[in-house]
Design a protein around this nucleic acid. Structure first.
Lengths: 234, 234, 234, 234
DNA sequence: CATGAATGAGTTTTCATTCAT
DNA sequence: TATGAATGAAAACTCATTCAT
């Protein structure tokens, strides 16, 4: 009994669920390549666990790199979240703008416009991935990270509201929608709420247990068309 | 987003002192008194910080007791959350039932019924307190604590849907609402979504920055009345 | 949702494995009755878990009383162990003395005496209960509680050695045993070791897996009779 | 037994500093070096205090590292003990095997063989260090950690018994020992018990107060030679 | 005498962060 | 740039002991 041998099983190296390839390949990337890799991993981890529950080690593992390397790119956990939000927010912003332009650029009746708007909205909900993660982050951490609330307010809510209002104005102008549609404050929010709530329900209940999107979308459009129609006299 | 973690607001200074009584005497309470006290504190802490972010010491401080005492009543942090959810869920359930009965017991036109339903829904959103906390918990932690998702699905979503459908049926039966109202799946969800989303917006943006409730409520009711009306021919 | 109800399941009162009778019966005992009850419980707990591993709450539970009551009788955990050892040690001491006298009082050949001695020794090993617990305590805690070592040295080892020597002397005197038997230091220890080791083996391996007592006893006696015999010329 | 817990001897003062190197630099070692270092420290601590009494902080201090580092290598206190036992057990096993071979490889009379066996056994007892610690651990914690009991049963007891039986067989074959020696079950255990008990006595009473090894060894061998001799007619 | 709620000083365990290699 | 061993401060949890009832 001269040397106490290292027990093979118990020792080091738990939680190696790297993503990246073999250890050789993963070395020496330029910051421009490494950064988005880390941010992607961070987004997933933060969205899944929340800020407090996220572990830097887990982010590193998801990114397939060592813990320490994160600190070459971001000075702290908080900074990583900040960067994550910004990185996430930028494309989301662009995508929203795109959708906005798409709707704005449309010709046709206001009813078709509305239908297109609704379709775009539910399409966003259907989509997996970054946006869902971002929403999760917003809902979960907005209270603690004001930038998230700001982004949601300015880039999501008010933009969406603006688009809806534009459509309403077009409909009223063309005589398709009742004139009140442009004068009722809060209407735009009511109009877009169901699609957004569908997203939240999916967050809470999961894809499987949440209300079916197609049905909601159809019922939603139908209700709006009737409810906004100029000819409608309740 | 300048100094990431939003300066730990209230509880920063090092855990605020007791709640009510004098900090001197060590009060001995019966478990039946102490338990809800702890659960109350836990609900606040969990809702405010999320499960991972919540600290047992903070719960104890909120309840005005020593850390260790919590473990006299609950064996672990997870168990405390579990108990908190259950305790929280029970009264919430009862209140929902009450609201349900109130609507069900109403006489009058379906349009009045609908108005009443909407009023009840927004009234819930307006109310501060435990419910808001519970919602926060659900949205934030449902993924990690299935009981929360279960509660939301069974006690909130499906109940609410049922009530809405009942109103729709009544309206169709009385000829006030168009017949499709009872046949369109997903309609009930669309109908109640705006009120629920209003709650989520308040969670994300705070009381001040969220869309105004009264406006939404009015626009919401108006849209529904028009959209559901039998006479409406879009 | 007015009061947060106490969750029935999670709350208080784990580990009630009282021994005593119904809660009414167990009240108000005179110290003379309560003390041994506690000491008994303490012995079991200390023997089973060791000093550090023993919990006062567990002792109380074993004794069927409340934690606090122990402190009416013993000022601290250490004091409880001390008292336990003393209480345990006293009867053990008496029993040892008795066995000593029994052997001393025997008439007959030294060989019979030796057989009787061996029988007494193994009988002790066979016996369950307090002694086994005391031995466990001694082996486990002697290092930390000198009184235990002292007791073992003075009351167990040296007494046992003395008895063995007396038998040897008798055998040599009667010519049955070879004269060296009284002059060889360490022989007495060697003679009694197997019975004691049998006890230790039972501690380590449990009743079931330890070497069979009957076989050891027979082999032991046989070996001694041959090995000590005056007629033996190896 | 005056001041119960025997004044915490060495480690009292507040945890002795490092072991070897300068306390300044933070040394980065390969796991293959650090692991045995920790296991060594753990063995000492566990042996000295028992599982329940051992403190992770003390293990860390003995190893000259920070508390947290232990958890880099072992997930919990229990796992550390487990690993310690395994690590400890491996060399012990090898040494036992060596001793076995040494005896097996001997030529000469069975009496010489027996003498050699006894010498090996007492030599083990005399030796300080890891073995003593392992024995302590086994005696103290076998009940709670079955692996310890298993190791003792399979690697110590049964091996030792086998060696003794081999010697007995050789002696009977050569006519030196009486034929019963191979047929008496339990004899092997009786034969090796005194050496083992000597170890236990040292554990209980300390080096100083335990029966003298040399005397026991001499008396032991003498008794065996006489008791096993073919020529002996008691 | 008796209870068990309450405390507080530890102990184990976790993890962001640092730094030797 | 990259690693993961190492640290330290904090958080979860335990339990001997106290004390209101």
């Amino acid at each position: 009994m001269t040397g106490m041998p290292a027990t093979d099983d118990a020792a080091a190296g738990q939680m190696q669920e790297q993503r990246g390839a073999d250890p050789e390949t993963r070395r020496r990337l330029a910051p421009a390549e490494r950064t988005p890799q880390i941010l992607e991993a961070a987004l997933e981890e933060f969205a899944e666990r929340g800020y407090a529950g996220a572990r830097m080690a887990a982010v590193a593992a998801r990114a397939g790199i060592a813990k320490g390397l994160i600190y070459h790119y971001f000075p702290s956990k908080a900074a990583l979240l900040q960067a994550t939000v910004r990185a996430c927010t930028q494309p989301a912003f662009e995508e929203l703008e795109q959708a906005e332009r798409r709707v704005a650029g449309m010709s046709g009746s206001a009813r078709d416009l509305l239908a297109a708007l609704i379709e775009v909205a539910y399409a966003r909900v259907r989509k997996e991935g970054r946006e869902r993660h971002l929403l999760r982050l917003i809902v979960t951490e907005a209270e603690h990270f004001p930038e998230l609330a700001r982004f949601y307010r300015e880039e999501v809510l008010s933009r969406a509201t603006a688009v809806v209002r534009a459509v309403l104005r077009a409909g009223v102008a063309s005589g398709e929608f009742a004139p009140e549609a442009v004068e009722t404050p809060g209407l735009a929010e009511v109009i877009m709420a169901p699609a957004m709530m569908a997203s939240v329900w999916r967050m809470i209940l999961g894809e499987a247990d949440a209300p079916a999107l197609e049905r909601m979308q159809a019922a939603h459009l139908d209700l709006l068309l009737k409810g906004l129609a100029a000819s409608c006299k309740p």
